[in-house]
Amino acid sequence: MSGGWAGSDRRTELPPDWPVIRADVLDRDGHRCRWREHGTVCGKHATEVDHIRPGNDHRPENLQALCREHHAIKSSREGNAARWAVRRQRPAERHPGLI
């Protein structure tokens, strides 16, 4: 594995027919990046399929074609948000007998 898959077990969570789903999404989106920012769609050649809402919802309406650059940006933002969510959790209170 290389790139975004390095050190990830995410691939094991994909359905057995993922190659077919992936090809269908890329075809549906015309192999064009659907990343939208400031009202503009990227439109570069897309080689990757992204889950719009993270998780295991592999329905076509939750999938979009993205170029490698924008998929990396989106994945990085999601990973950072998840790490910050954990950090923002209130720490466990110390037992009064240990204070």
Rank of each mutant, 00 (worst) to 15 (best):
C33H: 02
R68P: 00
N62G: 08
E78A: 15
R87Y: 11
D24W: 03
H31C: 05
R88K: 15
Q89T: 13
A72R: 12
T40M: 09
L14P: 01
G30F: 02
C67M: 07
G39P: 09
L26G: 05
I73F: 09
T47G: 10
C33T: 02
L66N: 09
S2M: 01
R94S: 12
P60N: 10
A72Y: 00
R32S: 10
A82D: 12
W5C: 04
H95L: 14
W84A: 15
K74C: 08
D9N: 08
R68S: 12
N62D: 06
I99D: 15
R59H: 11
P16D: 12
E48Y: 00
K74S: 11
P19R: 08
V41G: 03
S76A: 15
A65P: 04
I99N: 14
G79K: 10
R88W: 07
R87C: 09
A23F: 00
W18L: 05
A6N: 04
C33Q: 03
G3P: 02
R53W: 06
C33R: 03
H38Q: 15
H45C: 00
S2Q: 05
A81R: 15
A65I: 06
W84T: 15
E93Q: 15
D57L: 06
T12D: 10
H58M: 05
E13A: 13
P19M: 10
G7P: 01
P15C: 07
P16G: 08
R36E: 14
D9C: 01
C67T: 02
H45S: 02
V86N: 10
